[in-house]
């Protein structure tokens, strides 16, 4: 093993638990064997990755308990290497593993708790946007309203959930006994207002319109979604109320009408 690259590949192979010739490249001493010395690095490698998973999923950890979370973490570390310069993002395949690995895959509520925690992690350090100007709605030229497009704050995640996973997550966060999993379909909104992460359940009409905003639909199309929930004469008022509340809550970061040509 003459070259630096070959040596580094062998060292990494040892950390990954693969057969590796690194042992032959390292000096032994009377007080510590090569195996003992290398084990400091191999143990540290797995500990660091496990700590990253524990940091990202404290409620999933609490729900599963130490033994099952250790089993899940070991399987994760065996399956996924870290390719980023930061451990932030290492856990991004957790939902995939939970959906495939028995016995975790038999409990779909686990995948939903994972998505909740991931959404909060995202909200924590997503990009900043200045709070919308309070008089923004009044500045929109009337003719441009139908084509005006709201843009959500970068911290926003919309989570359609089938089970009472949020109630379970809340109980775990409060260190109380979580309820039994049960069907409770709802869409949840997680975002950051200022520096504080927030969440709430969405009424069906609000969830539908926020999904439409995610898809880039203009205000006119958003109103058509509301027609399925409200009488036609109530739609403009409901749409305005929603828009105002999203601006106040900083769920919507900007309204874009400048690019829209005025109608003639």
């Amino acid at each position: 093993m003459d070259g630096l690259r070959e040596l580094q590949q062998a060292f990494l192979g040892h950390l990954l638990g693969e057969g590796s010739p690194i042992v032959g490249a390292i000096e032994s001493t009377a007080d510590a064997s090569v195996a003992e010395r290398l084990s400091i690095y191999a143990t540290g490698y797995r500990l660091r990755l496990k700590e990253a998973l524990e940091t990202d999923y404290p409620r999933l950890h609490a729900y599963l308990g130490d033994a099952l979370f250790d089993r899940l973490s070991d399987a994760y570390i065996d399956r996924y290497r870290s390719h980023g310069t930061s451990l932030r993002g290492y856990s991004r395949h957790m939902g995939e593993l939970l959906g495939e690995l028995s016995p975790f895959s038999t409990l779909p509520v686990l995948g939903e708790i994972e998505r909740i925690e991931r959404a909060f992690n995202h909200s924590f350090d997503a990009a900043d946007r200045p709070p919308p100007n309070p008089g923004l709605l009044e500045r929109i030229p009337p003719a441009t309203w139908p084509d005006m497009r709201p843009t959500l704050h970068p911290s926003v995640t919309l989570l359609p959930l089938r089970y009472n996973s949020f109630a379970i997550w809340q109980a775990l966060a409060n260190e109380t006994l979580p309820p039994e999993p049960t069907d409770a379909p709802a869409t949840w909104l997680i975002w950051r207002r200022g520096l504080v992460s927030r969440y709430r359940a969405l009424p069906a009409h609000e969830a539908e319109v926020l999904h439409a905003i995610c898809d880039g639909e203009p205000f006119g199309a958003l109103c058509e979604h509301l027609l399925e929930h409200f009488a036609a004469e109530a739609v403009p008022r409901e749409a305005a109320l929603l828009l105002q509340s999203w601006l106040t809550e900083q769920v919507v970061a900007t309204l874009d009408w400048e690019a829209t040509p005025p109608s003639c």
């Binding site: 630096l4 580094q8 990494l12 660091r48 290497r81 870290s82 390719h83 310069t85 451990l87």
Partner: peptide, 25 residues
């Protein structure tokens, strides 16, 4: 130190051999 090779990150500060080739590199 080195922390990664073949685009896999160890997230550890791993030691180098102290020789001329490593110095030049």
């Amino acid at each position: 130190c080195w922390t990664r090779v073949d685009h896999t990150n160890s997230h550890d500060l791993l030691p180098l051999p102290y020789n001329e080739a490593a110095i030049a590199h």
